[in-house]
Design a protein around this nucleic acid. Structure first.
Lengths: 176, 176
DNA sequence: CCGATTATGTAGCGATCGCTACAGGAAAGT
DNA sequence: ACTTTCCTGTAGCGATCGCTACATAATCGG
């Protein structure tokens, strides 16, 4: 085996981030992983199972990225929001956001595998935010929910080409 | 001509809402429009142009739906938010939200045609919200931006299977 | 009524899709 | 050494993709 199964998955995660989920077909994925479509089916059983494994790996990588950016608790709720916004809205996260939208679209279509992935990512985010809020926050969970909804909304506006709207809303959040 | 070009587009909008943009290929679209792939290319030039026309029609229909739900101005910002949330998060809007996510994904990939569609829809929404806020609102535009970001975030959480998070965030918005 | 433009059906092109049948080599257990 | 299991390449299947060539019908201006 030239590449381990895990290394293949890592390589394919990179390919999905670059080219999106939509036209991730076996032969290009295999090329990215240094193998053949024949071997992908051999290792993963079906394309569906392969994609599921890629998405799981992507979710894990995302969680790791978040925790790597963990620099202690924020001073205020707003500071926490701003930090997560800076991470999530950065240019290098744009490819991941495309995949995120594709996951949501598939979940909306009723594909339960994608729903599970989405649910897992939301859970990770809520955990990260709650752990990053000031330790004396009286309602960390509730604040985390508000922050997450605001961030996700800002991301949508970013992708729709209206970052100005996202900026304005973020500036107003937790103000007065 | 059995069906006018416009009627064809309407029928194909329905098909896209039912089956999503991702696997909207010429032959199924043609079947939905009561014609043939051959004729779709004849009328619209290319699949790309066809999809563009479908998306434009969809955006227009969406704007019309919003204005049909216009029942005068809301009493408060929160009431406005709640009303738009009720409309946008309803079960019958779920198919449109799938397409919305697919538009955002394509826009994130740099496809400018989709970026234009997204920008247009956001503009329509901002206009609808501003026109629906209390007439004496001191900053209707700013409030509209905050409301839109909150709604879009709630939609994302809905699609990710965490409507509870969306509910919690909406309940807290404009509260004090 | 005739030529020209418009509209439509039939058939098929080359490419790609997920996946499989078949074969052979490598490795490993006995 | 033999057998069995694992790994991998080659070739191809049937389906679908966007699109086109070609022919024919319908319509319409003169």
């Amino acid at each position: 085996m030239v590449l381990t199964k895990d290394a293949m998955v890592q390589a394919m995660v990179g390919h999905v981030l670059q080219h999106g989920l939509a036209d991730a077909s076996l032969r290009p994925l295999a090329r990215a992983a240094g193998t053949s479509d024949r071997m992908l089916i051999y290792h993963f059983g079906s394309k569906q199972d392969l994609i599921a494994e890629i998405l799981t790996a992507l979710g894990t990588m995302y969680g790791d990225t978040l925790h790597a950016q963990m620099t202690g608790r924020a001073a205020t709720r707003k500071a926490c929001l701003d930090q997560l916004a800076a991470i999530s809205r950065s240019a290098q996260m744009r490819p991941a956001m495309r995949v995120w939208m594709q996951i949501l679209a598939a979940a909306a279509a009723g594909e339960t595998a994608y729903l599970r992935v989405g649910d897992r990512i939301v859970g990770q985010l809520l955990g990260w935010i709650a752990a990053h809020l000031p330790a004396d926050d009286p309602d960390a969970q509730g604040a985390a929910q508000t922050i997450l909804v605001t961030i996700e909304g800002a991301i949508v506006l970013d992708l729709a080409g209206r970052s100005d709207v996202a900026d304005a809303a973020l500036a107003k959040a937790f103000a007065q």
